[in-house]
Write a protein that binds this DNA or RNA. Structure first.
Length: 503
RNA sequence: GCCCCCAUCGUCUAGAGGCCUAGGACGCCACCCUUUCAAGGUGGAGAUCACCGGUUCGAAUCCGGUUGGGGGCACCA
């Protein structure tokens, strides 16, 4: 390594470089997280750069999704756009590649002038033909260098035709070696690479080129990215050398996998962070879960906040092998985090997932009933639906037969519901509390010689319309005396009708 | 096809030569608790550390090969 490639003495700077061609992806989120944890751990600077050179696929909407969800995860950065469409912060502005085109053009020209790059007029059809031939001969598909050997007359002829050339890097046939922070020494033979395109015919530069130009321009010292870029690294190093840049340290983190162990994809898995957010996964769950996909502190501890992760994180300890995204484990972790919340905190988080019809005071009363039953915040809707549904809707949810406990007929069940009704009716509104309700109902059950569980079944169904519900008496308390009585009456009506029809 | 990377229970992982008759967690099963469902508690099944061969007194840990898996080879990022 030459002196120019020594990055150890420079202040540490890392970046995340999402492309706004889709919503924030699980993999991008995890890469961003690792970069963040690394930067925080070593006290470095963290940069957000928007890679929007693919103008056809990049949108402002995706940029917003990415930035918003990064914030949602609790990941912050020192430089770059802080809000979608907002002003860039930092000494290396702008941080959107679409606004840095002049620099890329300049650097491309410099490469051509120095003989490190050249124009190529081959058409897509011609290139395709070459590739097909190579495939035939079972060779690696790569550019055959035809335009490198063009005479000046031929170049002028192409130019006169009005054909716009692409720019290709002249890749020296040399062995590229680098010391990956995670994988150790990695070696490639660049003779196998072929001269790749760095600027399109329309003048728009390509990813491999702009990434290298910007990493230098922004003085990035450590490039932490997905393993899918490992084989692209020799290209980047070839570019770095041609441009005379300093070589950053590389760290290639393992891929997140579909259950079939292929690279996690939209096709086979839910990959958008937004989707998890909308279902009610907590950001602290996602962070904790993502951090452990490919890394662990080396102990048996597994619950960590973002700050604790930053304190413990060590890139060198990141695994080499890919990790399957296990949604069962994600669900479990979310439950752990939900249960760790105070009632007040959970009420706040639940608010967006609850109908407006429920006022904040009610939501706070709902929380203790649902807290340990939630996997995702989103699940709360079904749990408390009986509170917002009308009595008629609830009644429509079950049939008379559903009310009957095992080995009890309609007449017996009607008797039990009547007993419960009678026991509750005399209660003042103020006494309509879970404790009192439970005591009354248990007493009624005992007097009739019913098992409590059997006795509660028709009541649960009548009150909530469901055989699975939050705790019965808490639910009754929330619903209030009037509505409970009305629903009990409705159940009674069904049971009576059942007796008539079956008689 | 070529190049590169990887390999511990189904899954996430602990393990950096003797502490491993391989530990934890999720999931699964059973039991307990219990008004349903959860949550919680207890216990259990589950990995000849992919395979083969070395190095070593000793290997999941080091080396080589094999197999398997994955990724990359665009005028996408």
């Amino acid at each position: 390594m030459s002196d120019t490639s020594d990055t150890t003495s420079r202040p540490i700077r890392v970046r995340m470089a999402p492309s706004p061609t889709g919503p924030l992806h699980i993999g991008t989120a995890r890469t961003s997280l690792y970069n963040y944890l690394f930067a925080r751990h070593v006290g470095g600077t963290y940069v957000l750069r928007i890679e929007d050179t693919d103008t056809a696929r990049s949108t402002a909407e995706f940029e917003r999704d990415i930035i918003d969800n990064l914030h949602w995860l609790g990941i912050s950065w020192d430089e770059g756009p802080q809000v979608a469409g907002g002003e860039d912060i930092g000494p290396y502005r702008p941080y959107r590649q679409s606004q840095r085109m002049d620099r890329y053009a300049r650097e491309a020209e410099r490469l051509v002038a120095s003989g490190h790059a050249y124009h190529c007029w081959c058409t897509p059809e011609e290139l395709e033909a070459v590739r097909a031939e190579q495939a035939e001969r079972k060779e690696a598909p790569r550019y055959n260098g035809r335009c490198l050997r063009l005479t000046d007359a031929e170049r002028e002829a192409f130019a006169r035709e009005g054909r716009e050339p692409v720019v290709r890097l002249k890749v020296p046939p040399e062995t590229i070696r680098f010391d990956d922070l995670i994988r150790g020494e990695v070696e490639f033979d660049n003779a196998l690479l072929g001269d790749f395109v760095i600027v399109r015919a329309n003048g728009v530069p390509l990813y491999h080129f702009v990434v290298v130009v910007d990493d230098e321009a922004m003085e990035i010292t450590h490039v932490i990215r997905g393993e899918d870029h490992l084989s692209n690294t020799p290209k980047h190093i070839a570019l770095i050398r041609a441009l005379g840049y300093a070589e950053p340290r590389f760290a290639h983190i393992p891929l997140i996998l579909n259950p079939d162990r292929s690279k996690m994809s939209k096709r086979k898995s839910q990959t958008a962070i937004t989707a998890y957010r909308e279902q009610g996964y907590l950001p602290e769950t996602m962070v904790n879960f993502l951090a452990f996909l490919g890394w662990s502190p080396g102990t048996e501890e597994e619950i960590f906040t973002l700050d604790q992760l930053a304190e413990r994180f060590d890139v060198a300890a990141v695994h080499k092998g890919g990790a399957v995204f296990d949604s069962d484990r994600l669900d479990y972790l979310n439950g752990v985090y939900i249960r760790a919340l105070t009632d007040e905190q959970l009420a706040l988080r639940l608010r967006p997932f609850l109908p407006d019809a429920l006022d904040d005071a009610t939501v706070l009363r709902v929380v203790p009933l649902v807290k340990e039953r939630l996997v995702r915040l989103n699940d709360v809707g079904e749990l408390v639906a009986f509170l917002v549904e009308t009595d008629a809707e609830v009644e429509g949810l079950y049939a008379a037969g559903d009310l009957l406990p095992k080995k009890r007929d309609a007449a017996e069940t009607a008797g039990a519901v009547t007993a419960a009704r009678d026991a509750l009716q005399s209660l003042a509104d103020a006494d309509f509390s879970a404790d009192v309700l439970e005591a009354r109902c248990r007493q009624a059950a005992e007097e009739m010689g019913w098992k409590a569980g059997d006795f509660f079944r028709p009541l649960r169904l009548a009150v909530t319309g469901r055989s699975v519900s939050p705790p019965l008496f808490g639910s009754m308390e929330l619903l209030g005396r009037e509505r409970v009585l009305a629903r009990l009456d409705a159940a009674l009506g069904k049971l009576t009708a059942e007796r008539v029809t079956s008689a």
